[in-house]
């Protein structure tokens, strides 16, 4: 049995009266490529935001490499409002902030590209290297971090080269074409040296050929950096072609889990995507 990297237990995320993610439990094992799919508004990105600490889940536990990152139980105002299940299962409140979670080894990309727009491609990647900096602020101010800076630049250039962005390394990020911006997001996430990479719709807006290239790229990333990949995607060609396992959610609830073949033939999934067949 492979070691599991990421584990979600009964995670529920509720905004006011809306339950965006409902009792979601899933496991991602080391070295796997896992996809999370579902119709629009199913709560996929919300699930990602819970994992990375952007949102505090209303109930449930999320652990990474066996260490609990986030745990919550309905408290305060949510005690009355809570509409999910397993309300009494968790008792502790543990909340790590997104930067701590990134330092633990989870990096992500964003569905609606969020680059540092005024900075160059190289600088964007360097920001992700910043958390490994050992030189203190005062020493940097006195210009004593030059050696470390040079090493950092070299390292950042490696990620940039890997993603095929070396000829635009000094361009301002906002001026890049859309596809390259997506690549830069991945380069930046890789520079955070994660063990688990979360990709939020990496193929959004790409044509079939680019999607095929991306598929190859994701495989290469996993093999070269020894990563585990967890992604949200709508392109079924990509999802079916690359995933080891797929989780399907609809209205925040998990409706299926399995290999691509199993998912393709699952009646609940077909119903969620195409609607129920009307009975005559």
């Amino acid at each position: 049995m492979a070691k599991n990297v990421l584990k979600l237990e009964n995670v529920t995320m509720q905004f006011g009266g809306v339950v965006a993610v409902n009792d979601l439990s899933l496991e991602v094992n080391e070295g796997e490529i896992i996809a999370l799919i579902g119709p629009n508004g199913a709560g996929k990105t919300t699930a990602f935001n819970c994992i990375t600490g952007v949102y505090e889940p209303t109930n449930g536990r999320i652990s990474f490499n066996g260490e609990t990152m986030l745990e919550n139980c309905p408290h305060g105002k949510m005690k009355k409002l809570y509409a999910g299940t397993n309300a009494g299962k968790f008792t502790k409140v543990i909340r790590k902030t997104p930067d701590v979670i990134t330092k633990m080894g989870i990096a992500r990309t964003f569905q609606n590209i969020r680059l540092f727009k005024t900075m160059t491609v190289l600088e964007n990647v360097l920001v992700a290297c910043h958390m490994f900096v050992k030189t203190g602020v005062v020493f940097s101010m006195l210009g004593l971090g030059k050696k470390e800076e040079a090493a950092m630049r070299q390292q950042a250039m490696e990620y940039i080269r890997f993603m095929g962005l070396e000829d635009v390394a000094d361009e301002i990020a906002a001026n890049l074409p859309y596809g390259k911006q997506r690549h830069l997001e991945i380069a930046r996430a890789l520079a955070a040296r994660p063990k688990l990479l979360l990709l939020d719709e990496p193929a959004a807006g790409m044509n079939p050929q680019e999607t095929a290239e991306l598929m190859e790229l994701i495989r290469r990333i996993r093999d070269e950096f020894n990563l585990t990949v967890f992604m949200i995607e709508h392109h079924m060609d990509l999802v079916m072609g690359i995933s080891d396992r797929i989780y399907v959610i609809d209205f925040g609830k998990q409706i299926a889990e399995g290999t691509p073949v199993e998912i393709q033939n699952n009646p609940a999934v077909i119903a969620a995507y195409l609607g129920e067949e009307e009975e005559a």
Binding site: V54, P98, D99, R114, F116, V127, M131
Partner: peptide, 17 residues
């Protein structure tokens, strides 16, 4: 500068806001 450009992304890249 990263914080100025996008707080959420900066935090996701490990910058302690």
């Amino acid at each position: 500068k990263a914080i100025r450009d996008d707080e959420v992304a900066a935090e996701a890249m490990g910058v302690n806001l």
